[in-house]
Simulated assay, not measured.
Amino acid sequence: MLLTTTLLQSEKPSLLKGRLQIAIEAHRIFRPHKHGMDVVAHELLKRLPLGEDNIDYHVMVKQDTDRCISTTQNRVVHMLKKAPYFIWEQFLLPKACKKIKADILHCTANTAPLNSTVPLILTLHDVIFLEQNNLLTKSSWYQRLGNMYRKALVGRIAKKAVKVITVSDFQKKLIIEKLGIAEDKIEVIHNGVDNRFFDKVNDGDLQAKLQAYGLKRGYIFFMSNSAPRKNTIGVLKAYAKLLILNSFSPRLLMKGISEAELTKLLKQENLLWMKGYIDTMKYIPQNDLPAIYQGASMLWFPSFSEGFGLPIIEAMASGTPVVTSNVSCMPEIAGDAALLVNPNKPNEIATAAYQILNLPLLKYSLIQAGQKRAASFSWDAATKKTVAIYHEIEKAI
């Protein structure tokens, strides 16, 4: 049964008086194509200890088609009206929190309402939006506008929040340095990796999955998008060098880029000759990711900047060697279980890949170390730490 108002639709709650009411903003988790912050919010919401604490959870989402979370005991889903993000976050969300008489608001994706009177917990994944001139960057206009929105608001919001959660020690240091937030106000909670990535896909199912995507085992996997920090140009240059070293090198699978975008970049870099060696995908459903990782010979993740780098530990859990950057948070997350390279030097990326392809003992050691490293990142532990913060704030209000 749905309770409908002009503001939101709420699946009928089953709540008890006298319990702590926590609103959790999860704006985009109902969208079919989920990305980093959406995945993190979804993993948290799946693991909340429902019924074990004196807490009722109110999940605030934008209406969309993938109903991946539903109302259950002590967790109520509220579908707010569709609206431009600024209006949704700055006006609809605080009104909805007022309507349900929320005691705490936890915003999970870097920004939050400025005018909310509810004690705020902010998950600030990164401050990458402060690293570049957002008008001059080669990112898409959508990304530029998002960065400008965050640049205008995040500093004020973080100072207003009673607690800031971030996902790496590296980002904590940047938040202190760039936003002037007190160290004791910031809690580092590393992301986790779901158990399904550790489960080996049997050969028949893996072959069928790869055939459905038109792939053959052994490709190099690179997760791209149009943001310059992902280092797509550097990856293309590195792959060209690898092909020059050995023309029989594996194909390159680029996720998050279209054929048209790839062609434009290859023309720009005078690398159109290698287009026939590259496969592209715009999106890979979350359920298919373990098979895509396991079908790869390695993951390339040579970003210039990240908040956490979730694909690093997903690939490691899947038994796939990782080549990643020696800057930003990547060394913190990868530890000694990946080959670390200078992302500004395509030669280093190509050399690392060549070593994995030609040194079986190195590849084996990376697989073993990677799976051990990935096992130290747990969504259950991340959720437990988050709920502990809820109780900490409860005592203070």
Rank of each mutant, 00 (worst) to 15 (best):
196 R>S: 12
329 C>M: 05
146 G>Q: 10
289 L>W: 02
274 M>S: 02
281 M>H: 04
104 I>L: 15
256 G>I: 10
82 K>Q: 15
141 W>L: 15
22 I>N: 10
26 A>C: 14
309 G>H: 00
369 A>F: 08
199 D>W: 04
105 L>N: 06
143 Q>G: 11
88 W>N: 00
376 S>G: 11
379 W>D: 12
5 T>P: 07
14 S>V: 12
141 W>Q: 13
257 I>N: 00
184 D>L: 12
21 Q>P: 11
278 I>W: 04
260 A>M: 02
93 L>P: 07
361 L>C: 06
317 A>S: 11
162 V>T: 14
336 D>N: 15
62 K>F: 02
75 R>M: 13
197 F>Q: 11
289 L>E: 03
329 C>S: 15
303 S>G: 06
58 H>T: 02
324 T>R: 08
32 P>E: 08
55 I>K: 03
264 K>N: 09
113 P>F: 12
20 L>V: 01
336 D>C: 03
338 A>I: 07
180 G>D: 08
37 M>W: 00
186 I>E: 10
116 S>I: 10
65 T>Y: 06
386 T>K: 04
42 H>L: 14
4 T>D: 12
109 A>R: 13
125 H>N: 09
207 Q>L: 00
277 Y>M: 10
380 D>I: 06
28 R>D: 10
334 A>S: 09
317 A>M: 04
26 A>I: 09
40 V>W: 04
340 L>G: 01
47 R>A: 06
167 V>M: 06
67 R>G: 03
309 G>T: 01
80 L>G: 11
104 I>D: 03
234 G>V: 00
396 A>Y: 14
254 M>K: 02
242 L>M: 09
1 M>C: 06
291 A>C: 02
365 S>V: 05
305 S>V: 06
300 W>E: 08
11 E>L: 11
171 Q>P: 09
10 S>H: 14
